[in-house]
Design a protein around this nucleic acid. Structure first.
Lengths: 187, 187, 187, 187
DNA sequence: GATGAATGAGACTTCATTCAT
DNA sequence: AATGAATGAAGTCTCATTCAT
């Protein structure tokens, strides 16, 4: 099954570089020096391998997420932010696949991406709710706020993945600072 | 030039519904009950009309943005957030086109979208910098923070556009609250 | 009927410049500043006008041909050669239409051109035969020789039409010299 | 590479029969009983294969041309005339492609054909000039005369290719006779 | 007479997928 | 397992021609 791995690996690289439509099955096989037909020994079709790439990528991020003991909701948030940002920095193709996914081609694809975002969201949201219950976090509309926090995080994730000299540690620090203390000068 | 407007209008709807690739020129014309050839009287090709749709959409958002007197950087931010969120609510297809644009097809397209995001970003960033200079906003890495704020805003924009019963006024309020005061319970 | 003439005239110019296929009906009308539909008030279709152009052109050449009293077959040849070469020089588009006609599109077209060549040929042939009967011209296969003479003439016609600084008088002289005396140095 | 040869061969036949425009890619493939897509595995497009056919055809003729020792310029002329006429008789499609080529479609095509004619021309011209230097050929304007000779030859080539019961040997003989001795009865 | 928007047949081309070897 | 030639559906685009105004 080495061949299958090769294909998946190369597909991941190339899909992230060229996007789903611009990449042909030929691109993948010829870049591996194998015949086009060989591809179909390992994957049903192009959508199939793309789906698998997405699933892999998403689960690779998910597996970095930690659920810490419920005493420390903010700590958990911080850890996870740093973890994922570091992953995006190490493997920017993951971030590109997730952020530049072309919607509306196949509902399956969209579900994978959206499922992933929902996972992140519920992580944030549950942290918030726990924080509120514990009296650490002020009252707010958790649905809205969790999306805001997620959005801020994802945007910074894109930047980190683009290698724009954004340092995950600093980014995480700034992100938490706003989230916790806001932007106003203290009086 | 009525026909041209019709085509643009219909293309906007359909692109936002089906995405660039799944939509064919035939889809557009048959949905208007006209011949395929007619399309080519008004647009060079499918990419051409898509580009025009993107430009329209982006400039429609831009024209909602206000630049207020520099005394009130935060007021300006709030106004703009509300304005754009309301636009996304009224015309969700605008948001969909911007947020679900398929990258890597044609650099021109990407530039339009990215140019738009840059515009938003520099608006946020300049507000922040002005706020800092005026002593209202605390010291922070404006590059990072402006992206965080933009990200939070965009994510909420997506939600509003999806009609998830998110109220632009409330969303704007919550967004500003986090941005200004953070999430911690005041001591 | 002025409009009809305009169209014919312009079509002649443009067909000779761009060829039958590369020239569109739009090219003709827009170059006259009139609407495309107007064309169809005067001509059934594109083939139709091309046919008419060809006929005009061919008859314009034919009308230059003289049939002199049968006593002077060679004189007649010379006169005709000069006449037609001069016409090609004055109106090179005539030559271009005749020489660069794209065969096999429509048998009608081909017949016009071939009919014209046949006319020229029989002129040459009859001169030859008369010359032979009169003892001026040596015995030869008139079918073959007339084609050779015609071919030589046509080739030089092309050159004259291309304006390659070929002078019709000189060309005619050389042509007759070869035809009459051949190329060998006299002994 | 058998398939490619088949396509080229069939294209040659069909182009010569129907001309460039009237022939579609479908005509070629369906006449071979293969799918249209197969064509595009071997050739970029219709222009591409036409170009290749032209090149082949032209070089097939060129390769029949001999350059004999410079002592015998007229012998060389005769040999070449016979050689090419025989080729035209054997493979009339070659002549048709060359003589009925539709100009002005694509400059590349025209260059191939014109380049070929130039080659023939310079062969004739250099023979003439050598002949003159050797005192065999009388003084004349070689530019003009070579074109006349070429024209005579090409016209006869057309006839031979049309299978009009023209015998290459006889044609060559007559052609040389006129060229050398002219048409006048010897006194 | 003139217009020009609209038509639609006809051709081209790409590429995911199949299948005999 | 692997090959790669072949397939054909799906889409793009052009332009001669029509027709209502």
């Amino acid at each position: 099954m080495k061949r299958r791995e090769e294909l998946l690996q190369r597909a991941r690289e190339l899909f992230s570089k060229k996007g789903f439509h611009s990449l042909t099955v030929s691109d993948i096989t010829s870049s591996l020096g194998i015949a086009r037909g060989t591809f179909y020994l390992y994957f049903e079709n192009k959508e199939n391998i793309y789906e698998e790439v997405l699933k892999e990528v998403v689960s690779e991020v998910s597996s970095r997420l930690k659920v810490l003991p419920s005493r420390e909701p903010l700590k958990q948030l911080e850890e996870n932010i740093k973890g994922v940002l570091n992953l995006f920095k190490e493997k920017p193709e993951i971030a590109k696949l997730i952020f530049y996914h072309p919607y509306k081609l196949n509902p399956k694809f969209d579900e994978i991406i959206e499922g992933f975002f929902k996972e992140l969201l519920s992580l944030v949201e549950s942290s918030l709710l726990r924080g509120m219950r514990m009296g650490i976090v002020r009252k707010c509309n958790a649905k809205i706020v969790s999306k805001a926090v997620l959005g801020a995080f994802l945007q910074l994730g894109k930047e980190v993945a683009q290698g724009n000299s954004f340092n995950p540690e600093e980014v995480a620090k700034e992100l938490l600072n706003i989230a916790l203390y806001g932007l106003l000068e203290e009086k």
